[in-house]
Each structure stands twice: as C-alpha cells, then as structure tokens.
C-alpha cells in the first residue's frame, strides 16, 4: 500500500508542509455545506480560506450524525429541513476552490458516499477541485472501495485516531491515511470546550510514533491559545463548532474575523517545533 501512497500526489500534505515551512501550525476549519444557505456557505468558506485557513473541511449534512454535538447538529438539521441536495456539495467545493488557495476536503458520514457509489462520488469530488475526504464513521477495515477510488482520483483520505485506539489500530490508521491523520482529542462528540484535552498530546505522539508525518488535532478547539498549545506537538489544528457558531450568529463576516483571530494562534514562535 505504501508504494501506491507514495506515487499519489497529496494536496493536503503539500498545504500542511507549506504552513510548516512558513512557521505555522496548519489551520483547518470546518463548515457545513449549505449552512445557512448554499450562497452563504460559499461566502463563509471563502472567508475562512482568505483569512488564514490552510485547509477547509466542507461537512455534508446527514440525517444521523453520531459524532456531532448540538451546535453542528442544529446547523445540519436546518440545512436538511430546507431541502438540501447532495449535488450542491460539488458546486460549493468548485465555487470555493476557485476563490481561495486553501485545500478543500469534504467531511462526510459514509452512507452518503455509499449511496452515490464510491467511485462516482470520488470522481465528482476530484472534478470539482476537492482534495479528499475525512471519514468520521469509516474505519480502514471497511474502506476497500475507498482505497481504490482515492488512488484512482488522487484524493486524500483522512482517517481518525482516538485516545482509545490500540497501538495496532493506530498503525493501521496511519498506514491507511494520506494527507494527515485526524487525532480525536477527547472521547466525545464535536463541540467547543474550554480547555484542550490532556489526551490530545498523547494521541498525536502515538500517531507520530507509528509513522504519521502529519497529525492534526480536532474536537473542542475554539481559541487561538488552544491552537498555540496544540502547535507545540501537532502539525495542524481543526476548528469546527466555534466557526459554525460564528456563522450562525454573525454570518460569513464573523467567520472571517474568527479565522483571522485563530490564525494568530497558528504562528509558531522560534522555539516552536
């Protein structure tokens, strides 16, 4: 497998390495597709990309989002209630990637991809300018079709590793991922938390030890100081709920303002790794 991985270009890896070269922790921001409307979700993602995010995660609203907390659930249920259709995800990815340099990933529960057909979904995502998929409910053991499709269309595949993952599993996850490994910082669902979990550093260290060149930390990250702290040991920081709250309360402009603020935390001091 590693041979294939090495021959496929990874745009997400390039973006994270470019941030590292510029002395920054890669900033990865999540926003749900179609929230609060398709137009505003495009504007919000553009604001994210032009204010300092290196990677943009576009979440696909799903009827049964078991890894999401109340804020993201409320946003995505509203989008679904308003009649969201999956086709607009590709329109959003295309529109945003034409207007920012940030790399576009899609975050989706697997049944959405499964229903369309893994190959079709991957092809359409690549055509729209997307760089890969983050898969919160897909483990490598079930990802056979996705391995093939992601290699065929040169897409990154971001699997999650958790505090509870055994060493054996961390190794499997690291070997299966391309772009970065998503380190889940806490045992729980998405949502802003006042402090970064103490488990995060170990999750990252274990993934690095298993050979992951890039590990980003997600869940509970909402402030520049969180990103500064994470930047001491991780390659990227993922912010979701805080951005969704900002979009809910202040529209795309608030997303831009929060991103700029978060980006100050991503700048590493000279002593930083």
């Amino acid at each position: 497998m590693s041979e294939t991985v090495n021959t496929v270009r990874s745009r997400t890896s390039e973006a994270i390495e470019a941030a590292r070269a510029a002395g920054r922790t890669a900033l990865i921001g999540y926003l749900p597709a179609g929230y609060p409307t398709v137009e505003d979700s495009i504007e919000a993602a553009v604001a994210l990309g032009t204010n300092g995010a290196d990677v943009i995660e576009i979440g696909i609203p799903y009827s049964d989002p078991v890894m999401d907390g109340p804020v993201i659930q409320a946003a995505t249920s509203q989008v679904l209630a308003d009649g969201f259709r999956i086709d607009s995800v590709f329109d959003i990815v295309k529109a945003v990637s034409e207007r920012t340099d940030a790399v576009m990933l899609v975050m989706t529960y697997w049944n959405i991809v499964d229903r369309m057909g893994v190959d079709t979904f991957a092809r359409r995502l690549a055509e729209a300018g997307g760089a890969g998929i983050i898969t919160p409910d897909l483990v490598p053991e079930e990802a056979g079709e996705w391995f093939e499709a992601s290699d065929r269309y040169e897409l990154d595949r971001v699997f999650l590793t958790a505090p509870s993952s055994t060493d054996e599993r961390v190794k499997l996850i690291v070997e299966s991922s391309r772009g970065f490994v998503y380190g889940v910082s806490v045992m729980g669902v998405t949502g802003a938390r006042s402090q970064v979990s103490t488990a995060a550093e170990q999750v990252v260290a274990r993934a690095h030890a298993a050979g992951a060149p890039r590990v980003a930390v997600g869940l509970g990250i909402s402030k520049p100081e969180h990103i500064r702290e994470i930047g001491r040991y991780a390659d990227g920081a993922i912010v979701g709920t805080a951005l969704v709250s900002a979009l809910r309360d202040g529209g795309p402009a608030a997303v831009g303002a929060l991103t700029a603020e978060l980006a100050t935390g991503a700048v590493r001091d000279r002593a930083g790794a």
Partner: peptide, 14 residues
C-alpha cells in the same frame, strides 16, 4: 454487517 463506526468506539466494541 461489519463495523461502520467512529474509531473512538472500536476499542469498546473489541
């Protein structure tokens, strides 16, 4: 069948 679950729960399932 299978195990289409978040990674966080895999250790518990095992």
């Amino acid at each position: 069948g299978g195990r289409w679950m978040p990674e966080s729960l895999i250790a518990a399932l095992e």
